[in-house]
Write a protein that binds this DNA or RNA. Structure first.
Length: 571
DNA sequence: GCCGTTTTCGGCCCGACTGTTTTCAGTCG
């Protein structure tokens, strides 16, 4: 059973939770949480590296002890400390920590009253036992009871595109900007953070509370308030004076780990950084803009998508920040469907919509025959579509159509259409749409075999995940990347907000491995190109620059790349 | 548990809101 970085991170999180329940040194607990975050966000597979006899890289905040624990968990799936801590508390008690309004102190109080699970908690709440516990009053007890019953423990996160539908109108309503993980373009958003500049906080707060979608006011203070919207999403509002705008925006954009790291840099320079500014003693020396905050600690501006304390501060210090790809860098789109299969528009309509979206080329890549549900194309229908595209290219100006296919990778790694027809296309995108449950070894072997087919140019949605719905299939992504590199192929970053696949970690891996990434809309209708902005957001979180993105190249250059990939295959 | 152009020991980000705790702890972001 392979141990993944996510498993190591989960073990460290659980250790942190259990140490917290044991009232251990908070800085030791923080060290474990930090290690969980660092390991979880790493593109290098640590267990695989160790299994090959390699060394662990030097990781920030991970010293001798945590390195040894990584080795232990990589080898055995667990570690002695974790097992010892698990023995100290009943199984499942950490789920209580996930409830809003409950932290380690109250979980301990519950534990002492023999309340050790969500089920125990519901029973005790119904029996009216909670208010009598130390540190609990009527209101706390009621809040916890509501949360336990509503299963709020499984903190709900919203896909970025869904959050956008709530965030943007509300930002307009309160005349503020959205900060938080939304601004960092994280693929899912837990709550919405709004920042309003005003010398009249009362008025700004009243506007939030008066928003028609507000269902519940969770907190209401002089500068900060929180509400829950009808959709279930929580919105937090902060009001600051104009002189503090930059410091506040920086603070509320996060991430928390990035902010802590920046504040530490401040401390080293004798500065205090909070949401009101950068302070030397009583004097504010910066804070009107985010740039001024970074400048105060000797750094250039850092883009929000990079602010995860995953190396961006070190890169900033040595002038090595990436110049992140932008939406307007995209010249074309390499994955779109038409009515011929499961799309909703004709090739002509899609071409015009792509042109209107500012693109210069669009690959038509309908499904292949195996995907019967989508009326996938066989060779005969594909030939017909190719003729249609030739005609359209003769007729349309300002947009070029590429003849392509999204061909299924069958379970044995063969492609769903014969090479004889695939060779006639401009672009072949290969994709897995079945057999998600294959073992890691078989899945990897299957995909590597498909990438060895000389006709293939791009691997679509490489992990197969659907955010919040379907786990990625188990595949050795590093092996896939190395094969793509060897063959001169690209990997797709499918920009559909349900997919965002490659994820940010794999984007960074692709960059490190020198594999170009195609940011593709997978549009099924003329309104399908708007999602490219989410793909670009994810690419930016993965440190990708214009030069790393295949479809940021002009058409002539793309054609040369496609020809080279094909020529390489023929050798 | 980590870490060092003040330190190998003694620090470790900072502030707001709530509820119950009569002066502040717990939780959250």
């Amino acid at each position: 059973m392979a141990v993944h970085n996510a498993d190591i991170a989960a073990a460290f999180e659980e250790i942190a939770d259990l140490l917290e329940l044991g009232d251990e040194n908070p800085f030791r607990i923080r060290a474990y949480r930090n290690a969980a975050r660092v390991v979880g966000g790493l593109s290098l597979d640590l267990a695989a590296r160790l299994a090959e006899g390699g060394e662990l890289p030097k990781l920030p905040g991970i010293g001798e002890d945590l390195s040894a624990k990584i080795g232990e968990i990589a080898a055995t799936g667990t570690c002695k400390l974790l097992e010892k801590l698990r023995g100290r508390f009943p199984a499942g008690i950490t789920e209580l920590l996930r409830l809003p309004g409950i932290g380690p102190k109250r979980v301990r109080a519950l534990h002492e009253a023999r309340i050790d699970s969500l089920e125990d908690l519901r029973r005790a709440a119904r029996a009216g036992q909670l208010p009598a516990l130390p540190g609990f009053g009527e209101k706390t007890a009621q809040r916890i009871q509501d949360a336990a019953q509503a299963q709020l423990g499984a903190a709900r996160r919203f896909k970025l595109a869904v959050a956008a539908q709530y965030a943007e109108p509300l930002a307009k309503h309160v005349d503020g900007v959205v900060a938080g993980s939304y601004r960092r373009m994280k693929e899912t958003v837990g709550d919405l953070d709004f920042l309003v500049v005003s010398d009249d906080p009362e008025k700004a707060t009243a506007r939030l509370i008066g928003y028609p979608e507000v269902r519940e006011v969770l907190a209401r203070g002089t500068t900060r308030s929180s509400v829950r919207l009808a959709s279930g999403i929580q919105a937090d509002l902060r009001v600051v004076p104009p002189t503090s705008f930059g410091a506040a925006l920086h603070y509320f954009t996060g991430s928390k780990a990035h902010n802590i790291a920046v504040r530490k840099l401040g401390i080293a320079r004798g500065l205090k950084i909070n949401e009101y500014g950068v302070w030397r003693g009583e004097r504010r020396i910066a804070g009107e803009t985010e740039q001024s905050v970074y400048a105060a600690v000797g750094l250039p501006y850092i883009e929000p998508e990079l602010r995860e304390n995953q190396g961006e501060l070190e890169a900033a210090r040595v002038g090595a920040l990436p110049r992140l790809v932008r939406l307007d860098d995209l010249r074309g789109d390499l994955h779109a469907h038409t009515r011929a299969t499961d799309g909703r528009a004709s090739a002509r309509e899609m071409a015009l919509a792509a042109k209107a979206a500012g693109l210069q080329y669009l690959a038509i890549t309908d499904h292949s025959r195996r995907l019967a549900m989508a009326r996938g194309l066989d060779s005969r229908r594909l030939e017909k579509q190719m003729d249609e595209i030739d005609d359209l290219n003769g007729e349309l100006s300002g947009i070029a159509l590429l003849k392509g296919i999204e061909v299924d990778i069958l379970e044995d790694g063969a492609l769903d259409l014969p090479d004889s027809i695939l060779r006639k296309l401009d672009l072949v995108v290969a994709a897995v749409h079945s057999g998600f449950k294959l073992s890691r070894a078989r899945q990897t072997e299957r995909i590597l075999a498909a990438l060895d087919n000389p006709c293939v140019h791009v691997l679509a949605h490489p992990s197969g995940r659907l955010i919040g719905e379907r786990q990625p299939y188990d595949v050795d992504m590093l092996a896939v990347m190395r094969k793509a590199r060897e063959r001169g192929l690209a990997l797709e970053l499918n920009a559909h907000p349900d997919r965002l696949d490659l994820n940010e970690v794999h984007c960074r891996m692709a960059k490190d491995e020198g594999v170009p990434v195609a940011i593709a809309s997978d549009a099924h209708g003329t309104d399908g190109f708007g999602v490219l902005r989410y793909g670009v957001g994810q690419a930016r979180r993965g440190w990708l620059e214009k030069k790393d993105v295949l479809n940021a190249r002009p058409l002539a250059e793309l054609r040369r790349w496609l020809a080279r990939a094909s020529a390489k295959a023929k050798r």
